[in-house]
């Protein structure tokens, strides 16, 4: 029985574990991933609408939670990084934070343990939106030519250094920013899922082994899986924070006056 279960466990974990067959319909329109995204969005929207249907000056518990989530992004990120101007970006940044955080949390929900952000598609389009946002904000503020000059030419750099510096500035601002933004989130979620798979499935594999001592170690393996789940909770929230933080930093550097 146990051996049969172990034989069914796909081992070692592979990339294919991340690609589940569609639930219904053609292609990839309705998969577990898109379902998770929809559920995460629905939960977020319902929670906020319910918590804020009747706001009071002295908040109720749920209203306080909703306000804290928004206030955290508004004051802790937008206002901190961008300054007083940042408050007008706060609603978007808060939406971004909630979207990433709730989707990341699928990675540790028992029975699911697979975040939609383990598919590069989701981090990628979020990174593209941030990319378009910070360029658009800068161009709107300074005009295209001045914005590009601000971004590519560090103030006070000697002329002979410019040919060396400009490609570096260009690459770091316009190539690596969106790439790292998307890849950081994707890789963290992907790695988190792999770690959980390794320790969870590894426990089954150990349990199914002929060696009695090895079978006992499966308990340890599962314990580690539980600890890693808690760790993944931190990672899920931290990565949402980092994504929003970096988006704010990029917006801030776009609209910063050169001094």
């Amino acid at each position: 029985m146990v051996r049969g279960l172990a034989a069914e466990v796909p081992w070692p974990p592979s990339v294919d574990d991340f690609f589940l067959p569609p639930i219904a319909g053609p292609d990839n329109w309705f998969t577990k991933f898109t379902l998770f995204v929809w559920v995460a969005v629905a939960i977020t929207i319902i929670f906020f609408l319910v918590a804020y249907r009747n706001p009071k000056l002295v908040p109720t518990k749920s209203q306080w939670i909703a306000e804290s989530a928004y206030g955290f992004v508004r004051d802790g990120i937008a206002k901190d990084i961008i300054g007083a101007e940042g408050i007008k970006f706060a609603p978007y940044l808060a939406s971004l934070f909630l979207f990433i955080a709730f989707n990341n949390l699928w990675g540790i929900i028992p029975g699911v343990q697979l975040s939609p952000n383990t598919h590069i598609a989701f981090p990628a389009f979020l990174a593209i939106i941030s990319y378009v946002l910070f360029i658009w904000v800068g161009v709107k503020r300074f005009g295209f030519a001045k914005y590009i000059k601000n971004q590519l030419i560090p103030p006070g750099a000697p002329a002979w250094l410019l040919p060396l510096v400009i490609p570096l500035e260009f690459a770091s601002t316009f190539l690596f920013r969106p790439l790292t933004l998307a890849l950081r989130l994707f890789a963290n979620m992907f790695a988190g899922h792999v770690i959980l798979l390794v320790f969870t499935l590894g426990g089954f594999v150990l349990l199914g082994s002929d060696n009695f001592a090895l079978a006992g170690i499966s308990i340890v393996s599962w314990a580690i899986a539980i600890v890693m789940t808690i760790f993944e909770l931190l990672v899920a929230l931290l990565q949402a924070y980092v994504f929003v933080l970096l988006t704010s930093v990029y917006v801030q550097t776009s609209i910063a006056e050169e001094h």
């Binding site: 294919d16 939406s95 598609a121 979020l126």
Partner: peptide, 30 residues
């Protein structure tokens, strides 16, 4: 199943879902 190649349907779905979230939160809540 190259994990670094995005599934374009997911980009579309993600954009729509994120758009709905942003619209409702930014219009009715924040």
């Amino acid at each position: 199943h190259n994990p670094v190649v995005p599934i374009w349907q997911e980009i579309v779905i993600g954009l729509i879902a994120f758009g709905v979230l942003c619209f409702i939160l930014m219009k009715f809540v924040f």
